[in-house]
Amino acid sequence: MASTIDIRRADERFHTRAGWLESHHSFSFSRHWDPGNTHFGLLLVSNDDVIAPGTGFDTHPHRDMEIITWVLDGGLVHQDSEGNNGVIYPGLAQRMSAGAGILHSEKNDSWTLTGAPEHRDPVRLIQMWVIPDTAGIAPGYEQLDINDQLGQGGWITLASGMTKHANQRAIGIRQQNAALHVARLRPSETLDTVTAPFAHLFVARGELALEGSGLLHEGDAARIGAAEGQRITAGPEGAEVLLWEMNTAVDFA
C-alpha cells in the first residue's frame, strides 16, 4: 500500500482562548467537534497549550487514558491524587496513566505575578492522549530527564509500549501498539521517519522539509498512512519534532 500524507497546517487547528489559556487542538476537543477529525491512529488528543503565569488547570478527573506532557517553555507543576507531584520542564519525559480514575492539576510554575520578571513567564506544552490496551488499570506516573540524550541528536524514544523499544525507551505507556519519538534537529540535519501503518509528525519548533510534501512550519502536522520512513530535513534554525509511531487505529464503531 502506498503512503498517504495529509498535511494539517497550524492555523487550521481548533482554537480555544480563555484569558489564562491559549490552546490549539489538532483533533476534536471539548466544545470543538468535527466528526471527521476525532483522531489519527491511536492518537486522540494533541493540544498545543500556552498557560499564563499564576494560572492553570484546577483539579479535574481522567479515566482510561495514557497522557503524555511535553513542555517546550517554562515549568508546569503537576499534582495528582496518587501523591505524585513535581515540576515538568523542557526535556523531561512525563506520563500519567489515568487508568481506573485519577484526579490531577496542572499549573504554570510562575505562581504569582508579583515575583521577579524571570518568574512571570507563560508555559508552553504539548499534551497528547492515547487509549491504553486495557481499561481499568491502576493509575500510574513516570518521568525521566532526557536532555543529555536529546543533545546527542537523532530520534529519542520518549515513550513506548512496544516490545521492540523495551530497552531503549525513556518511559513506558500501557499501549503496545504506540510509541512517541522526539528529536531536536540541528540546522539542515536530516532524519528518516518510521515505517508503520500510522505516523503522526508534529513540528513543535522551527521548520522542516518533509519528503514529498514540502515545507512544514511550527505547529504544522503530517498524518502519514502506511509510512515508509519519509525523510525530514530541518530548516536553517533547526527544529524540534514529535513523531508518533502506531500499528493500529482506534475503532469507534
Rank of each mutant, 00 (worst) to 15 (best):
A166N: 13
A159C: 13
L158A: 02
A170V: 04
S160V: 04
A166Q: 13
H181M: 11
I173N: 02
I173K: 03
G172H: 01
A183R: 10
L180V: 02
N177C: 13
L180A: 06
R186F: 10
L185A: 09
S160G: 03
A178H: 00
Q168N: 13
H165W: 11
Q175P: 05
N167H: 15
R186Y: 14
A179K: 06
I171P: 00
L185V: 08
G161D: 02
A159H: 00
V182S: 13
N167E: 09
L180W: 00
K164Q: 12
A166M: 12
H165N: 07
Q176A: 14
R174I: 15
R184N: 12
Q175D: 01
G161E: 01
N167T: 14
A166W: 13
A170I: 04
S188G: 09
H165Y: 07
A178K: 06
H181I: 11
A178E: 00
S160I: 01
M162C: 11
Q168L: 09
I173A: 04
P187V: 05
Q175L: 05
S188R: 12
N167Y: 15
Q175S: 06
H181G: 11
Q168E: 10
A159R: 04
H165L: 07
R184V: 10
N177L: 10
G161W: 01
N167W: 11
H165C: 07
N177E: 08
L158H: 06
R174Q: 13
T163V: 11
G161T: 02
R186C: 15
R184L: 07
R186G: 15
N167I: 11
R184G: 08
Q176E: 09
H181S: 02
R174H: 12
L185H: 06
L158Y: 07
Q168F: 07
I171W: 06
P187I: 08
H165S: 03
T163E: 08
S188K: 12
I173M: 04
R174F: 08
I171T: 05
H181P: 09
S160A: 02
M162L: 13
G172F: 01
R174D: 10
A183H: 03
R169W: 06
K164F: 14
S188C: 10
A183K: 07
T163W: 14
A166K: 11
G161H: 04
Q168V: 12
A178D: 00
A170C: 11
A183V: 12
G172A: 09
G172R: 00
A183Q: 00
I171K: 11
L185T: 00
I171L: 03
V182I: 14
A166D: 15
I173L: 10
I173C: 06
R169F: 09
H165A: 01
K164G: 04
Q176D: 10
K164E: 08
S160Q: 01
R184C: 14
R169V: 04
P187C: 13
P187W: 06
S160M: 01
R169G: 05
M162K: 08
A179C: 05
M162N: 10
A166L: 11
A166S: 12
A178S: 10
Q175M: 07
R169S: 03
N177Y: 08
S160K: 03
A159N: 04
A179S: 06
N177P: 13
L185P: 01
L158N: 05
L158G: 13
A159E: 05
V182C: 10
A166G: 12
G161K: 01
